[in-house]
Amino acid sequence: MKVEVRINGRSVAAEVEPRMLLVQFIREVAGLKGTNIGCDTTSCGACTVLLDGQSVKSCTMLAAQADGLDVMTIEGLAPDAGDGSAPGATALLHPVQRAFHEHHGLQCGFCTPGMVMAVTSLIAEAEPGSLDEAAVRVGLEGNLCRCTGYHNIVEAALAAAREAGVAAGATE
């Protein structure tokens, strides 16, 4: 069947089997390898992408279910440099990426793309003043870091939440 997904603003169309998973479509058809396959069982969150702005685990969706919809992967998160270069190809970072960089919110890095996308979704749908440390930890329950480097991931998420004005007690 023909599946067409807008990935990071670019339309990607292909003839695929109905059983192709969205994460396979992203990695093998669109060639975007930033989205990792970890557990392949909806547990670890390494394959988290945004579907119409909401975080989803792309190992537990068919590509067919995303047909005609908008997907954003880690490659599409950085702002457009405005010089014709591909998103992510420059030093420009999305605020969540910058927070992970500044707070060293990673160790081996395998979970990082999924963590960043999950944090981006968490902040986008948070009510103002709602994200404290407990809310961030609960909000990231769908993402596992096998290095157990959660402390700095949570610090990064809180910093990004403060910048977005949704952190508890934020004064911005």
């Binding site: 969150g45 975080s55 989803v56 685990k57 969706m61 999950a118 979704s121 329950e141 769908g142 993402n143």
Partner: peptide
């Protein structure tokens, strides 16, 4: 239920 990603679907 589950986690945010699961609840979105």
């Amino acid at each position: 239920i589950g986690d945010p990603q699961v609840r979105h679907r």
